[in-house]
Simulated assay, not measured.
Amino acid sequence: MALLNFKKPEGPVAGTLSPEVEAFLQGYSIEVMPRTAQKVEDFRAILPAGTRVYIAHIEGTPIEDMVATAKRIAGEGYAVMPHFPARIIKDQATLENWIAMYQGEAGVDQALLLAGGVDQPHGDFHSSMQLMESGAFDRAGFKRLHVAGHPEGNKDIDPSGGMKNVEEALEWKQNFNERTDADMAIATQFAFEAGPIIAWADALRAAGITLPIHIGIAGPAKLQTMIKFAIACGVGPSLRVLQRRAKDVTKLLLPFEPTDVISELAAHKAANPDFNIEQVHFFPLGGIKTNAHWAIENGGKAAVPAA
């Protein structure tokens, strides 16, 4: 779906699902990779000004490609947040070199710290907590550190699929936030049902974890694509939403869109202003342009592109 000639709408913005959805999508972020970013001629044509753009670092991607992508996107006026996957960073010197490259070439001052999802660490680090404790980001003057959250559990932290170790890790990160100057938030894996997401967020708050949540949402994609990514990323019980959809032959060939889950979360946020989900973070599984177009059509003024 080409959006190269999409123009900023004049007057009232059509297509907004509801005022609650428009408010909920305000300040949304989106994730790219170097190879997917190359397919976008100009991010200003599809993303709102100031959008935070995460750059996913997949095992095997050269750091030079990551930094070049960060430089290009930052140059178009966006806040860049690269991933720092602990298990693919060899040692302290490598970590500090990556930070220096991002800062020197792209002016980066924020990062998403995560374990990385590979089974065997490539070197000294195996968790995001070790990256935080290294002090490298503090010394470099990073203003914002995000950490990963998993509404349906994380087998990298708890192989049993339970939540106990996951919650303990978030408690540690909450304590880190309180004893340092870090401006932190939880960026989560995507899920497909609002009810379990709401229950998870409420449980965190009840446990004293008050870090704001940037909830992961899978952007529009073919159903088969969505199921493939959901299984690969370890999405839990909410996968049943896709499985039910797959049984309906009338919908099998239609793209799966995040309309329902976002509408329900937006309505809950509007009714509960203290709800600790702060923003939406999109995983554009069906393509960055497709995701941006969905946001433009459904998010009203919250998603108007920069140019």
Score class of each variant (00 low, 15 high):
E278Q: 15
L204Q: 14
A185S: 15
G300N: 04
S134C: 05
K269G: 04
P255F: 06
S238E: 12
P273Q: 08
A203V: 01
H293D: 05
M163Q: 15
N272W: 10
P273L: 07
M81I: 13
C233V: 07
K173H: 03
M66T: 11
R205M: 02
A136H: 02
A182Y: 10
A182W: 08
L170A: 12
H214M: 00
I88C: 06
Q130K: 06
I209A: 04
Q224Y: 01
A111M: 13
G286S: 08
R240Y: 05
E22P: 00
T180G: 00
L25Q: 00
G234E: 02
D42P: 08
P305C: 07
I30L: 15
A306N: 12
G287Y: 05
S127E: 13
V67W: 13
A100E: 12
N154G: 11
G107L: 02
E178P: 01
A302G: 06
D248L: 12
P82S: 09
P34S: 10
Q279A: 14
D181N: 04
A302N: 00
H214I: 03
F229S: 13
V241G: 06
A100T: 03
V241D: 06
E64F: 02
G286T: 00
H214P: 02
M226N: 04
K143E: 14
P121C: 11
R87P: 10
G216N: 09
A271Y: 09
K251T: 10
A14M: 07
P9E: 05
P196W: 10
Q243N: 15
I89D: 03
M129F: 10
F84G: 05
I217Q: 05
M163T: 02
G123S: 01
T94S: 15
D65F: 11
D124P: 01
I262N: 04
Q26E: 14
A37T: 04
Q279E: 01
M163A: 02
R87Y: 06
M129R: 14
A14F: 02
D138H: 14
A79C: 05
L170C: 08
H268R: 13
D124N: 12
I73W: 09
H126M: 03
L254K: 15
D42N: 14
L95R: 10
I288N: 08
M132P: 08
L112A: 12
P121N: 07
L265S: 12
Q189S: 11
R240G: 07
Q243K: 13
V53Y: 01
R87L: 10
K90H: 13
V67Y: 13
S29I: 07
A37R: 00
H150I: 11
A221V: 04
I55W: 04
Y54V: 06
A111G: 08
P258F: 02
Q279L: 14
T61W: 11
A203H: 11
L254Q: 04
G287F: 01
T36S: 14
K228V: 00
I55F: 02
G116M: 04
I157P: 09
A307D: 09
A194V: 08
G15D: 07
P196F: 11
K301C: 00
L242N: 05
A292H: 01
R52I: 11
P273A: 04
E257P: 02
W294M: 00
D158F: 06
L252Q: 13
V21G: 08
K90L: 14
I157A: 08
I296S: 10
P237V: 14
Q243D: 09
I157E: 06
K247E: 11
R245Y: 01
N272I: 09
H281N: 10
I296L: 15
F229T: 14
W172Q: 07
